[in-house]
Design a protein around this nucleic acid. Structure first.
Lengths: 122, 122
DNA sequence: CGGAATCCCTCCTGATACTG
DNA sequence: CAGTATCAGGAGGGATTCCG
């Protein structure tokens, strides 16, 4: 399916957001932005994410150039993650989005309740 | 699974982003922000979205208080959509995110190629 | 500790066909 | 025109197990 010419940038925006716009990527970036450098299990505990999704998402973020991965070949192993410059540049848009989310969650809940109420008039 | 105390807001941010953070919601808000008021099939053509997803997403956006739906009981029927004040307030975060996406798509592509190259050394 | 691999299930998403 | 209903495929994501 092709995006039409009315919103020519929509498809490209879509493309990027499909990559870095999912919930786990966003939350990982927020965490790394706030705490600087974190280890694998620190992120895991902080976010309440499964091992599988964390390693998967981190690898994608590394591949897309948003996150640095530093492997310390000690015993036991130690792997640290932090943001690259591009990851840092992603921080502001994400923080703004996150702040909006926090600011409007109650509004959304209220709108939902109202909507449900209006549609419950059997 | 519960989000831990290190990032207490992450779960709430996650909550909101799960609602309005999907690709279609974002693109619909962007379109309505740019064009003001659009009809159902105008949105459909602009975004290259399926009927099903469009009606579904629009209903959710209406329910969450981001979009107004105006039904004109004419023949043929005519339904118009535009942003509510809360929808407008969502516009800035979304536009910023969209702009970052456009600005960095080439960087991401480059990072990917480099990553793939480095991991192709058999 | 930091993963990779496997299993399994849900939800998202699109295609198609039908209705007012 | 603006939907709804139904079906089917694929991706998202958790739990568990095993390895370096």
């Amino acid at each position: 399916m092709k995006t039409q010419d009315q919103c020519p940038q929509c498809s490209r925006i879509n493309e990027v957001l499909s990559r870095v716009g999912d919930r786990w990527s966003v939350l990982i970036v927020i965490s790394l932005a706030r705490y600087g450098t974190l280890r694998f299990n620190e992120l895991k505990r902080n976010l309440g994410i499964s091992q599988r999704m964390l390693s998967r998402t981190l690898r994608e973020l590394e591949r897309d150039g948003l996150v640095n991965r530093t492997y310390h070949p000690t015993i036991p192993p130690k792997v640290e993650y932090n943001l690259t410059p591009m990851g840092e540049s992603f921080r502001q848009p994400v923080e703004i989005l996150g702040q909006w989310a926090l600011d409007n969650i109650t509004n959304i809940d209220a709108a939902r309740e109202k909507f449900e109420a209006n549609h419950a008039d059997a």
